[in-house]
Simulated assay, not measured.
Amino acid sequence: MTAQRGHGLAGLACVAAIAIAVVASFRYLAVDFGGLFEAEARGRMARFVVEFFPPDVSPAFLRQVGAASLQTLAVSLLGTLIPTIVGGVLALPAAGRFGAVPKWLARSLLNGLRSVPELVWAALMVLAAGLGPFAGTLALALHTTGVLGRLFAESLENASPLPETALRDLGAGAVARFVHGTLPLIAPQCLGYVLYRWEMNIRMATILGFVGAGGLGQLLYFHLSLFQQAQAATVLVAMTLLVLGDDALSGWARRSLSAQAH
């Protein structure tokens, strides 16, 4: 009873601390929700939104948006595929499969890669490789390698060792034990991570365009800078369609993989 009471008091103290932190954050940031609903603020927001309609659907501009969409899609694909391979390789030592020192080195590298935001990587890559989609691809790949590598490593650590143990008892080698024992266990989860990061990278690829990394983001920044909201609206629609398409593809892939597993 004493232990349960202690756990209950600790839980209440944690909830109280979180509540105090939330209230303090609102007070510190001086958040004024009432200002959002004032007549003047509503009028300014309404006028700004109205300027985006109707979107520019002229054939020449649609061709330009289509080319930028393909560029953004290519950047997001390469910015996810490269980290899937490199992160998968680094996940093996990061999961402790080659000893303590390689584990520390791999985890330190992965932590360093993902601790630097994509925009900072993009700024560095623009300086190194110049303006364009190549810089955006490198920026996404560097950050996403850190993220996927850590997620893959955690999946390996949490995987059941029983299949590999059984294969070892049958005389299978280390590679065969991993490929036929552990890899099938973690493949669905890792695929989910990859698809989710690809969806995030589509959005991030558009943001990186604001620092000269090409694609829809650069097009959006250009037209917003010139207060050409009709053209910006078309770019936003293209961004939305890309994200929706990726979401539909991710859902289909997960359902197919789940059906095969059962």
Results as ranks from 00 to 15, higher is better:
M1F: 10
Q4L: 13
R5W: 03
H7C: 00
G8R: 10
A13G: 06
A13D: 00
V15H: 00
I18A: 15
I20T: 08
A21E: 05
A21P: 11
V23A: 10
A24P: 00
A24F: 00
A24G: 02
Y28Q: 09
Y28V: 00
A30H: 08
G34H: 11
G35P: 04
A41Q: 09
A41R: 11
A46F: 06
R47Q: 14
V49K: 01
V50P: 00
E51Q: 12
F53R: 01
P59L: 15
A60N: 12
F61D: 07
R63V: 14
R63W: 14
V65G: 08
G66F: 08
A67S: 13
L73I: 05
S76F: 01
L77N: 10
L78V: 15
G79Y: 05
L81G: 04
I82E: 07
T84Y: 00
G88V: 13
V89D: 10
V89T: 08
L90F: 15
A91H: 13
L92N: 14
A94M: 12
A95K: 11
A95D: 12
F98H: 10
F98E: 07
A100L: 14
P102M: 04
K103F: 06
K103L: 08
A106L: 03
A106G: 06
R107Y: 01
S108L: 12
L110P: 04
R114K: 14
E118K: 06
W121D: 03
W121H: 04
W121Q: 04
L127S: 09
F134E: 04
A135E: 01
A135V: 05
A135S: 13
G136Y: 07
G136D: 08
G136Q: 03
T137H: 01
A141Y: 06
A141H: 09
A141S: 15
A141T: 15
G146L: 00
G149H: 05
G149Q: 08
L151T: 04
E154Y: 10
E154R: 09
E154S: 12
E157Q: 15
N158G: 15
N158I: 01
P161R: 05
T165M: 14
T165H: 13
A166Y: 01
A166S: 13
R168Q: 12
D169C: 15
G171L: 06
G173N: 10
A174R: 05
V175N: 05
A176Q: 13
A176M: 11
R177K: 10
R177Q: 14
F178W: 14
T182M: 10
I186C: 02
P188V: 00
P188K: 01
Q189E: 13
G192V: 09
V194G: 02
L195Q: 04
W198M: 12
E199I: 10
A205G: 15
T206L: 02
L208V: 09
L208K: 00
L208G: 02
G212N: 02
G217W: 01
Y221V: 05
Y221W: 11
H223I: 04
S225L: 07
Q229K: 07
Q229T: 08
Q231L: 03
Q231Y: 01
A233V: 02
T234R: 12
T234C: 09
V235M: 04
L236N: 07
V237N: 03
V237M: 08
A238N: 02
A238F: 06
L242K: 00
D246C: 13
D247E: 13
A253L: 13
R254Y: 02
R255E: 13
S258E: 14
A259E: 15
A261G: 06
